[in-house]
Nucleic acid binder design. Structure first.
Lengths: 110, 110
DNA sequence: ATAACACTTAAGTATACACTTAAGTATCGC
DNA sequence: GCGATACTTAAGTGTATACTTAAGTGTTAT
């Protein structure tokens, strides 16, 4: 039983945590190592690793280990997909409001 | 200890569940009662109520009870805020890519 | 060689989530 | 009034999340 929107579950879930959003916030400025991501967070390194795993599972972040350091960076595709899901719903909602306003205008001279 | 971004936690958390996204999907077409929201979901009514509570707590949906029926509708403000959080990060990421490309162009004649 | 560094794995704990069934309350239509 | 309707509350269950500490592994610098 496969759902096409399952990746949105993971993306929104990943963005629902303030520590993970802080990590994304840092990574949009450019790549960073795990330690760099961890520094501003009041949390143990394994805690940060677990958040990183969630971000990677969602596809928002990818990382690569070179030597003993792992470098992380944003993968913008999923970010865009999440943004578009919201944008489409907001557009539908606004379109409905427009139709409603038009209807009210057309019938106001009764 | 109050965090300004706490409402984003709730908004993204609310959007992370497929049943709740289905409810939002229905509500952007226009208001609906609890039963109408529940009908397409393979779930008990109390289950739906709990999802509705999450959506209301996030500010994505508001509802009003008239007589014995509760009517729900979208409140677009939080939807827009979530969209903007993503849009801003994507813009930062793209701006960085632009600077990087520009730098590479300027230094390619070495 | 060895000590410091940068993760990584494992295991444990406490809380939160996503449901369920059963029972209850407040309208509405006749 | 009284049965059907539309939620609503309460309580229970199983799974998932967000951490922690302790003990690794492989890499780099001296």
């Amino acid at each position: 039983m496969f759902r096409a929107e399952a990746h949105l579950d993971l993306a929104f879930q990943a963005l629902a945590d303030p520590s993970r959003r802080a990590m994304v916030d840092r990574l949009v400025q450019g790549p960073a190592t795990v330690s760099e991501l961890a520094k501003p967070l009041a949390m143990s390194l394994p805690g940060v690793m677990q958040h990183l795993a969630v971000l990677e599972a969602s596809g928002l972040v990818i990382s690569e280990k070179i030597g003993r350091t792992r470098t992380c960076r944003i993968e913008p595709k999923v970010l865009t997909q999440a943004e578009q899901w919201i944008a489409e719903r907001r557009a539908l909602w606004e379109r409905r409001l427009d139709r409603l306003g038009q209807f009210l205008d057309e019938t106001k001279d009764d």
